[in-house]
Structure formats: C-alpha cells, structure tokens
C-alpha cells in the first residue's frame, strides 16, 4: 500500500539516489561525506528519502551473489527469448501469413537464429567481412559493422571468433565483463559464474583496451577474467575449443563438473548426486547426442542415470 501522504517528493528521491551512487558504489572522499551530511540537513524530506533509498540498497546488497546472478541471468534469458518470438511475429506479419513461412525454404528456427541458439544447438556464421563465427549452445550475439569498426556483442553464452585479418577495421567485442579488441585474433569467449573465459588461438587480443590496465593476450593463452576486471591464466580439465568440432573433450574431470558441462547442452535439469560428484571422467564425447553420453557414463563409472522426466535427469550411485 503506498502511503502517498508520507512519501518524499521525487526530487528528494532523485537526489538521494545520486548520493547513494556516490557513497555506496564508490569510495567517497571525506569532502563528499561532509557534503552529504549537509544535503541531509538541507530539506525536511531528505532524511526520509535517504532512509528509503538506502534500505532499498541494503535489501539488494543482502542478496546471495552467485545464486542471484545465475537466477537473474536465466530469467533475463527467458525474457529475451520471448522478445525473439515477438520479433519473429513481426517478421511473419511482414511476410503476409503463416502459410508463407511454412512454405519458405527457411524454417522458423533459421529465421531467428542468425544470432542465437537454443540449448543443444550450435551454429556457424560468416560476417560480411569474411570473419568466421561459431555460436555454442544457448548463446546469442549481435554483429554491427560500420566503416570504422567491426563490433561483436556477446549477449549470452559462448562464441568463437576467427577475425579476418584482411580487413583493416579493428574488431571490438563487448562482453558482460567489458570490452576486448583484436585485429586478426582467433579467440573463444565463454560467460561463466565468475565472469568470462578467454582463450586465444591465433593473433593477439587486448583485454579492456580503454583501461590503463589493458592486457595483451597472446596466442596459446587461456584466461579467466573476473567481473572486477582482474584476470588469471587457467589450466582447464577440458579442451575449451572442443565444441567447435562438436565434441566435449575432458581429462580427469570430476563427474559433478562434467554433468554441469553436459547440462549446458540439454534443456531442463541435469543433477549429479554428491556421493558420485568426485568420480573422474576422461575421454572425448560427441555432443550431438548427450543422451548417449549419459549412457556411456553408466558403463565406465559406478553410476546410474535416472530419467525422472525427460527434462529432469539425475546421475546417482549405481
């Protein structure tokens, strides 16, 4: 229930929000703190506006980090796929009728899919500059070319880019953690819980080119980039490029991690029981049939795979 009679005026709220940004998202100087105290006392409604705005911020700050990130990312993904459907409907309206779409050589998924893939789907694209791009499962990108630059936006998921070096425009790549640049790089980008995985196979890639802490990443390097911009070399238990050849290739990977990896390629839930999560998996598996991969696991490990429903599968001790 809005207690409209008690609510501070919009101007006071806007000012309180500006102070919140200065005080909570940055390290305020003593001078800023003093100015804030002055502001607080300068209007009878300011303390109340501040109280409301800061308790809102406390609420948000109390959210568990990893869980919230994952939940919001997944939910925003659902919203954006609904938007894709709306775009499709608009497209069909231009085409005239559903009958037209059904007869057209392009099926519905292709109409949508120059920039996104569903779970389990992979896609190859070619940019107008001759660059080759591959989208992994449940991923989406946008490409914008202008006379000055080539821009790839990773909206979600995982993408590999083989930038055509014969084009002299710089390639800019926007990701959830920030911007990367290259001219001729062959690189792979994967969103994950901590930020972004970056692997460079050929050429050079600059991480955060606009930043004083810009980092040049060379062919052969694989980095984990954190949301706060720090980056570390990582060695992985799987070949990050495997999916570009349609395989999942792993070495001594704990089964729990393997299941999480596999889950990316399947709609619905795939869970792994704790008591088998540390069993080790090695081998190269064809991603085209994840059901078969699950079957193979039951032969090499003491586990069974239970299909509670088609979209809820669990791996338990045999």
């Amino acid at each position: 229930m809005p207690n409209a009679e008690n609510a501070p005026a919009q101007t006071q709220v806007d000012q309180a929000i500006d102070w919140l940004v200065k005080l909570r998202f940055d390290t305020p100087s003593p001078r800023t703190e003093r100015q804030f105290q002055q502001w607080l006392a300068s209007h009878p409604q300011n303390p109340q506006a501040w109280q409301r705005v800061s308790s809102l911020s406390d609420e948000l700050a109390g959210l568990p980090k990893a869980l919230s990130r994952r939940t919001l990312d997944a939910s925003q993904r659902q919203h954006s796929s609904r938007r894709d459907h709306l775009k499709l409907l608009a497209l069909l309206a231009v085409g005239g009728s559903l009958g037209w779409a059904a007869r057209a050589p392009l099926g519905l998924p292709q109409l949508l899919a120059d920039s996104s893939t569903a779970a389990g789907e992979r896609r190859q694209l070619q940019g107008s500059d001759g660059s080759r791009i591959q989208l992994n499962t449940a991923s989406a990108i946008d490409l914008h070319y202008s006379s000055e630059q080539r821009l790839l936006e990773l909206i979600r998921g995982e993408v590999s880019l083989d930038a055509n070096a014969n084009d002299s425009r710089p390639f800019r790549i926007d990701t959830r953690v920030g911007t990367l640049g290259t001219l001729d790089g062959q690189l792979l980008l994967r969103e994950n819980d901590n930020g972004l995985l970056l692997a460079v196979r050929r050429g050079e890639v600059t991480l955060f080119p606009a930043s004083p802490s810009a980092r040049l990443v060379q062919a052969g390097e694989t980095l984990q980039v954190q949301a706060n911009g720090s980056s570390q070399a990582v060695s992985l238990r799987s070949d990050p490029w495997g999916w570009t050849d349609g395989v999942l290739s792993v070495q001594q990977m704990p089964l729990g991690e393997f299941a999480a990896e596999l889950a990316r390629y399947r709609p619905g839930l795939l869970r792994c029981a704790d008591e088998v999560a540390n069993l080790k998996v090695s081998g190269t598996y064809q991603l085209a049939d994840t059901g078969q991969i699950l079957q193979l696991l039951t032969r090499s490990l003491p586990v069974r795979v239970e299909y509670r429903t088609r979209y809820w599968v669990s791996i338990d001790a045999a």
């Binding site: 940055d26 980090k65 919230s68 990130r69 919001l72 911007t179 606009a210 949301a227 706060n228 911009g229």
Partner: peptide
C-alpha cells in the same frame, strides 16, 4: 551484484 567499482566498470565497458 558483483560489487565492481564505478571506475572499474567505466574502464571495462
């Protein structure tokens, strides 16, 4: 959510 500072976000984006 990630707790990154404004200065850092500005550089990254």
């Amino acid at each position: 959510i990630d707790g990154v500072s404004i200065a850092q976000i500005a550089q990254q984006l």
